[in-house]
Simulated assay, not measured.
Amino acid sequence: MDRPDEFTGFPVEALDFYDDLEMDNTKGFWEAHRSTYDTAVAAPMKALTAALATEFGQAKIFRPYRDVRFAKDKTPYKTHQGAFVAKGPSTGYYVQVGAPGVRVGVGFYEASPARLASLREAMVEQRRGAELEDVLATLTGAGWELGGDRLKTAPRGYDVDHPRIELLRHRSMTLGRSYGFDPVIHTPELVERVRADWREATPFVEWVLRYARG
């Protein structure tokens, strides 16, 4: 018999909940279906991250409410549930569930000017820059998708013809992998899949932590 706090997979109801929320993102819908969120989304996410905590650390499970104070879009609720294990400022491991299924990620989602400058300094330097290229080539070759916010042109002070200019344009840098509707997301096996993904992408997290200063 499963323990109440044991991860058994995200039920289909979790995906259906977010599919419906995208169509009716209102307080009325949320209050009418709050119990579904609690049992099909929040509880499994808590169990999943708890199962990974011994190796990776405690996760922050994000609030389901959007901050709409300065947003044009005033819909009140997020259309996915994310959790993040911080290993440094805005840097670490990520997992989310929503209508499109489950997605995992790693990287840094923002950086202070000082940290971004230090990362770009490392990208420019031949040994450290080549190290990053090798890590990214390995991971993208294994199916990870490189993402993040990027400048449209070269950052100030860098040659537009630099061989790593595409990396230097990044203001944030992430790697993601989607499970979509793979049946594994509904099973306890997802724990080991996420564990394996985060382990595989750890060299990228470690590179960022090693060279980000400030």
Score class of each variant (00 low, 15 high):
residue 142 A to S: 13
residue 146 L to V: 02
residue 147 G to P: 00
residue 84 F to N: 01
residue 108 F to D: 00
residue 103 R to L: 15
residue 101 G to I: 11
residue 150 R to V: 07
residue 134 D to L: 13
residue 186 H to D: 09
residue 154 A to P: 09
residue 82 G to V: 15
residue 109 Y to N: 10
residue 166 E to M: 05
residue 153 T to G: 12
residue 158 Y to G: 03
residue 181 F to M: 12
residue 96 Q to K: 12
residue 90 S to R: 14
residue 179 Y to W: 11
residue 176 G to R: 07
residue 121 E to N: 11
residue 159 D to W: 02
residue 105 G to P: 00
residue 137 A to H: 11
residue 171 R to P: 00
residue 173 M to W: 08
residue 175 L to F: 07
residue 111 A to Y: 02
residue 166 E to D: 10
residue 86 A to F: 09
residue 177 R to C: 05
residue 145 E to D: 11
residue 101 G to K: 06
residue 171 R to E: 13
residue 99 A to M: 02
residue 156 R to L: 02
residue 152 K to R: 12
residue 108 F to S: 08
residue 185 I to P: 15
residue 87 K to P: 12
residue 120 R to Q: 03
residue 177 R to M: 08
residue 166 E to K: 10
residue 120 R to D: 06
residue 134 D to S: 14
residue 148 G to T: 04
residue 147 G to A: 06
residue 160 V to M: 10
residue 135 V to I: 14
residue 113 P to T: 03
residue 180 G to T: 07
residue 119 L to Y: 01
residue 151 L to D: 07
residue 148 G to I: 01
residue 107 G to P: 00
residue 95 V to H: 02
residue 185 I to Y: 07
residue 160 V to P: 15
residue 152 K to F: 01
residue 126 Q to R: 10
residue 93 Y to Q: 03
residue 172 S to H: 09
residue 91 T to P: 04
residue 147 G to M: 11
residue 176 G to S: 13
residue 90 S to T: 09
residue 151 L to C: 03
residue 112 S to E: 13
residue 141 G to F: 07
residue 124 V to E: 13
residue 178 S to G: 11
residue 147 G to D: 05
residue 110 E to K: 13
residue 119 L to H: 02
residue 187 T to A: 05
residue 95 V to N: 01
residue 95 V to S: 05
residue 119 L to W: 01
residue 168 L to M: 10
residue 81 Q to Y: 15
residue 147 G to I: 14
residue 164 R to G: 06
residue 102 V to Q: 06
residue 172 S to Q: 03
residue 101 G to H: 09
residue 109 Y to C: 08
residue 125 E to T: 15
residue 84 F to P: 00
residue 169 R to C: 00
residue 120 R to F: 06
residue 98 G to D: 02
residue 127 R to P: 03
residue 164 R to S: 03
residue 115 R to D: 08
residue 89 P to A: 12
residue 125 E to K: 13
residue 114 A to M: 13
residue 98 G to Q: 04
residue 155 P to H: 09
residue 185 I to E: 08
residue 85 V to G: 13
residue 92 G to T: 00
residue 146 L to F: 05
residue 87 K to F: 00
residue 168 L to D: 08
residue 182 D to M: 06
residue 113 P to S: 08
residue 102 V to N: 05
residue 142 A to V: 06
residue 170 H to K: 01
residue 82 G to M: 10
residue 141 G to Q: 11
residue 111 A to F: 03
residue 88 G to F: 03
residue 91 T to Y: 12
residue 165 I to S: 06
residue 120 R to N: 04
residue 133 E to H: 02
residue 146 L to Y: 06
residue 150 R to T: 14
residue 141 G to R: 15
residue 172 S to N: 09
residue 168 L to T: 05
residue 180 G to L: 06
residue 176 G to F: 08
residue 90 S to D: 14
residue 110 E to D: 14
residue 130 A to S: 14
residue 151 L to Y: 00
residue 184 V to T: 14
residue 134 D to G: 09
residue 136 L to S: 01
residue 174 T to M: 11
residue 186 H to P: 04
residue 170 H to N: 04
residue 97 V to Y: 09
residue 101 G to N: 09
residue 145 E to C: 09
residue 140 T to P: 01
residue 151 L to R: 10
residue 111 A to D: 01
residue 103 R to V: 15
residue 128 R to A: 15
residue 104 V to P: 12
residue 175 L to Y: 07
